[in-house]
Amino acid sequence: MAEAPPRRLGLGPPPGDAPRAELVALTAVQSEQGEAGGGGSPRRLGLLGSPLPPGAPLPGPGSGSGSACGQRSSAAHKRYRRLQNWVYNVLERPRGWAFVYHVFIFLLVFSCLVLSVLSTIQEHQELANECLLILEFVMIVVFGLEYIVRVWSAGCCCRYRGWQGRFRFARKPFCVIDFIVFVASVAVIAAGTQGNIFATSALRSMRFLQILRMVRMDRRGGTWKLLGSVVYAHSKELITAWYIGFLVLIFASFLVYLAEKDANSDFSSYADSLWWGTITLTTIGYGDKTPHTWLGRVLAAGFALLGISFFALPAGILGSGFALKVQEQHRQKHFEKRRMPAANLIQAAWRLYSTDMSRAYLTATWYYYDSILPSFRELALLFEHVQRARNGGLRPLEVRRAPVPDGAPSRYPPVATCHRPGSTSFCPGESSRMGIKDRIRMGSSQRRTGPSKQHLAPPTMPTSPSSEQVGEATSPTKVQKSWSFNDRTRFRASLRLKPRTSAEDAPSEEVA
């Protein structure tokens, strides 16, 4: 009796068929016929556990003709996506030579605008209408194809895939403007070719909807975003200037109206006075309405000098805001240009540092100066060695804690006790272990408590650290204090090793 083939788990290929790579489910599931010992083939499952149809090819690079078809379809799909992405970037994010197409579109729109203006002049109306009709045909074809291509290429973005995504893309403001202008152009052409009475009025009214094509030149909205950011950044200043200017306008108009309503027919109503105030304070000055009385002229002159300053403030605020924003954008561009080279330089330096163990090129690091100058660790070890030599091999803490019996001779020589300023008595072995921070803190506390006492003391002649007598400086308080830590004499004296002298005989010792 033939044995059933062993159940295979995992992703390994079956024996005897090495080139074939078959994806098997996580659990080997066989058909009921196979479990019962029949000759049925096992049921194939996909990666998600769903059964595959009987005629479906197995996924994998070596699955025969199905694999070749899959490779061809995958390559075609990649080319399709690449083309779609390229078209989308050309239309929505132009760079380099892609601006040539947008310059061509701008020339078409500008020519249409010029011809629309010439069509309103009686001398050039006939020729402009003929040229404009031909140009409209060209623009309908160009913009119609462009609109379709834009909607198709938007599928390269995830949020615009599918018919719902394309509809979302078509609802964008600039796409809506394109659609309105396209419909208006078709209506103008249809009305112009019919030759009816309505054609002339339709051409004159709907052609100027094509002015909206100038708005579509900035599809990404960079200028509007820049203007919005400047207004938002200086909103408080703008609101303040406009508010005060509006108050000056209504008060000036009302007072001039009261002064001129009886003697001047131009100011017969408050609305006429508001019109005069707006034209005057905005420095336009049509001259259609002028005050005639001396009181009205004085009020107009005073409020004009006051109001023009507030009406001119928004222009200066926006101008300075634009300058600052442009400078910030230039700085951001320079930062973006330098970020990648800086990151590459840091990575290269780290690779060199991690692979080169000698690091002989590091001549400006802490390790280099640590090898030249005595390190703080060596100074600490030197302090501890000196203290243990004086205390008979014991550390200062051990000397303080060691009990001394009554009447027993002390094995240590008597030492002079010292007192730290602002604290109780402490171990004499710690007097010379006072660090730089303690010395600086002690000097600052003395300056806070009594700076007036220092200038009363007789001035001391500054001497070099080499000429100081070591026996005289029994305490860190003898170090000359200065008002600034930048004094080199104080810094050098604080680094010197001060020996400890006994109370009975204080021989001067120098520590090399």
Rank of each mutant, 00 (worst) to 15 (best):
M1V: 02
M1R: 15
M1L: 07
M1I: 15
R20S: 01
E22G: 10
A28D: 13
G38W: 07
S41F: 15
R43S: 15
L48P: 07
G49S: 15
G49V: 01
R72S: 11
W86R: 02
Y88D: 14
E92V: 08
E92K: 13
R93P: 09
P94R: 01
P94S: 14
R95P: 14
G96V: 13
V100F: 01
Y101S: 01
Y101D: 00
H102L: 01
V103L: 01
V103D: 09
F104S: 13
I105K: 06
L107W: 04
F110L: 01
V114M: 08
Q122L: 05
N129S: 06
L132P: 00
M139K: 06
I140N: 15
V142D: 10
E146V: 08
E146G: 04
E146K: 11
Y147H: 07
I148L: 02
R150W: 12
R150P: 05
R150Q: 07
V151A: 10
V151G: 14
W152R: 09
W152G: 06
W152L: 10
S153P: 02
S153F: 14
S153T: 04
S153Y: 13
A154G: 04
A154T: 04
A154D: 00
G155E: 03
G155R: 02
Y160D: 13
Y160C: 07
Y160N: 06
Y160S: 01
R161P: 04
W163G: 00
G165D: 04
G165C: 05
R166P: 02
F169S: 06
V176D: 02
D178G: 00
D178N: 02
D178V: 01
I180N: 06
V183E: 06
S185P: 00
S185W: 01
V186G: 06
A187D: 14
I189L: 09
I189V: 09
A190D: 00
G192A: 02
G192C: 04
T193I: 04
A199D: 13
T200M: 05
S201C: 01
A202E: 15
L203R: 10
M206K: 12
R207P: 12
R207S: 10
R207H: 15
L209R: 01
Q210R: 00
I211N: 00
L212R: 00
R213P: 00
R213L: 00
M214R: 02
M217K: 06
D218N: 00
R220P: 00
G221R: 03
G221D: 02
G221V: 05
G222D: 06
G222V: 13
G222C: 02
T223N: 04
W224C: 00
W224G: 00
W224S: 06
L226M: 00
L226V: 00
L226Q: 15
L227P: 00
L227Q: 00
G228D: 00
S229T: 07
V230L: 07
V230E: 01
V230G: 05
Y232D: 02
A233P: 11
A233E: 08
H234R: 08
H234Q: 11
S235T: 00
S235G: 03
K236N: 06
E237V: 11
E237D: 06
I239N: 05
A241G: 02
Y243C: 00
Y243D: 00
Y243N: 02
Y243S: 01
I244T: 01
I244V: 03
F246I: 05
F246S: 11
L247P: 01
V248L: 12
L249P: 03
A252V: 08
A252D: 07
A252P: 10
S253P: 01
S253F: 00
S253A: 04
F254C: 05
F254V: 01
F254I: 07
L255P: 07
V256G: 05
V256I: 10
V256F: 09
V256A: 09
Y257D: 06
Y257S: 02
L258R: 01
A259P: 14
A259T: 03
A259D: 04
E260G: 10
E260A: 08
K261E: 15
K261R: 07
K261M: 11
D262V: 12
D262Y: 11
A263P: 11
N264T: 13
N264I: 12
S265C: 01
S265F: 08
D266E: 02
D266Y: 04
F267L: 07
F267S: 08
F267Y: 06
F267C: 10
S268C: 04
S269F: 10
Y270D: 13
Y270C: 11
D272N: 12
D272A: 06
D272H: 09
D272Y: 14
S273T: 02
S273L: 11
L274H: 12
L274P: 04
L274R: 02
L274V: 09
L274F: 04
W275S: 11
W275R: 07
W275G: 14
W276L: 03
W276G: 05
G277E: 13
G277V: 03
T278P: 00
T278S: 10
I279S: 08
I279T: 13
I279V: 06
I279F: 13
T280R: 03
L281W: 05
L281V: 03
T282R: 04
T282P: 06
T282S: 01
T283S: 12
I284N: 12
I284F: 08
G285V: 11
G285A: 11
G285R: 02
G285D: 07
Y286D: 14
Y286N: 12
Y286C: 06
G287A: 07
G287C: 02
G287R: 05
G287V: 02
D288E: 14
D288V: 12
D288Y: 12
D288H: 02
K289Q: 05
T290P: 11
T290K: 02
T290A: 07
T290R: 05
P291Q: 08
P291A: 11
P291S: 04
P291R: 01
P291T: 02
H292P: 09
T293P: 02
L295P: 07
L295R: 05
L295Q: 13
G296D: 12
G296A: 15
G296R: 09
G296V: 10
G296S: 14
R297T: 05
V298D: 01
L299P: 06
L299Q: 14
A300D: 09
A300P: 05
A301P: 07
G302D: 02
A304T: 06
L305S: 15
L306R: 09
L306P: 05
G307D: 09
G307C: 08
I308M: 06
I308L: 03
S309C: 11
F310Y: 12
F310C: 05
F311I: 04
L313Q: 05
L313P: 05
P314H: 12
P314T: 01
P314A: 12
P314L: 14
A315D: 06
G316V: 11
G316A: 09
G316S: 04
I317N: 09
L318Q: 10
L318P: 14
L318I: 11
G319C: 14
G319A: 15
S320F: 15
S320P: 05
S320A: 12
G321A: 13
G321D: 14
G321C: 10
G321S: 14
A323T: 15
L324P: 15
L324V: 15
Q327H: 12
Q327L: 02
Q327P: 09
E328G: 11
E328V: 14
Q329K: 11
Q329P: 15
Q329H: 14
H330Q: 05
H330P: 11
H330N: 10
R331W: 01
R331Q: 07
Q332P: 11
K333N: 06
K333M: 04
H334R: 10
H334N: 05
F335V: 02
F335Y: 02
E336V: 06
E336G: 13
E336D: 01
K337E: 07
R338G: 07
R338L: 12
R339G: 09
R339W: 10
P341S: 10
P341Q: 15
A342P: 04
A342G: 08
A342T: 14
A342V: 12
N344Y: 10
N344H: 05
L345H: 14
L345P: 11
